[in-house]
Design a protein around this nucleic acid. Structure first.
Length: 261
DNA sequence: ATGCCTAACTAAGTTAGA
């Protein structure tokens, strides 16, 4: 059986995390990787090192913040889009899309939105609306699509260790959750939740209060599968060992494995 | 209500993350 492992990883600074990325690629050998929060300009992206590891890559960097990339093992991703349509004035590098290994992959870094309420939360919701519009087009295209990334949304109270201290956070607001629900209502399958319908599963643990050591996490990195890909899922998971490394990102790589012809 | 911890930018202190 041929399979594809597709992963999303908020790397939180690709320059400071390059050794960790190399180690993870070597050990887990994902076929397609979506990276977020590069925190690097285009000319500082370590393409040479990534290609030496056997991956083709495209990226959209930005000074200090944001930045997204798609890696594909043994091939160059064919870029189909950078930036979400719908707002020419949006200068954040938060979306890149490509075809690789027979699948269309959208790599997204949805705005955090804190503090809430305020202009940052307004921007989050506006960006989410644009994503919903674009996702509908992808869905209607009939192509096999994975929409993967850091959504900065905790979909339900089952996706966080304890919502009590997060009730005012942008990640848990009813408006954020409603956008995520509307996106899923187009038909997409939330791979991790489909694989683990009843379990607590987290993808992010903040650096405060020993939250990693206590497994006080949030599930905010998601992989959404189009209609024809959903029944092809053979497994999904979180590479938690990456979060346990010294100087780790606060997110762990999150992945789905699909059966392909 | 705020800070906790970490990184980037830039040179000690701010901004942003989630």
């Amino acid at each position: 059986m041929n399979t594809l492992k597709i992963a999303t990883f908020n790397i939180n600074g690709i320059r400071s995390r390059l050794p960790a990325l190399m180690q993870w690629l070597d050990r887990e050998a994902p076929d397609i990787v979506c990276l977020q929060e590069l925190k690097a300009q285009d000319d500082a992206f370590p393409a040479q090192e990534i290609r030496s590891a056997g991956y083709g890559c495209i990226w959209h960097g930005q000074k200090s913040w944001n930045g997204v990339a798609i890696l594909a093992k043994g091939m160059e991703p064919i870029e189909s889009r950078r930036g979400l349509p719908g707002d020419e004035s949006d200068s954040h590098s938060r979306y890149i899309e490509a075809a690789a290994h027979g699948i269309v992959v959208g790599c997204l870094y949805l705005p955090n939105g804190n503090p809430q309420p305020g202009p940052k939360f307004d921007y989050k919701l506006a960006w989410f609306e644009r994503l919903i519009v674009h996702a509908a087009r992808l869905w209607d295209s009939g192509h096999p699509v994975v929409l993967a990334g850091d959504y900065n949304v905790v979909p339900t109270d089952e996706d966080i260790y304890n919502p009590r201290s997060w009730t005012k956070d942008a990640l848990l607001q009813p408006e954020s959750r409603e956008c995520y629900r509307r996106l899923l209502a187009q038909g997409w399958t939330d791979a991790l939740r489909a694989r683990y319908p009843d379990e607590r599963i987290y993808t992010f643990w903040d650096y405060f209060r020993q939250h990693w050591q206590k497994n006080s996490g949030l599930r905010i990195d998601h992989l959404l599968l189009s209609r024809d890909l959903a029944p092809r899922m053979v497994d999904a998971g979180v590479d938690r060992w990456v979060r346990d490394q010294p100087h780790a990102s606060d997110h762990a790589p999150t992945w789905v494995r699909l059966e392909i012809d």
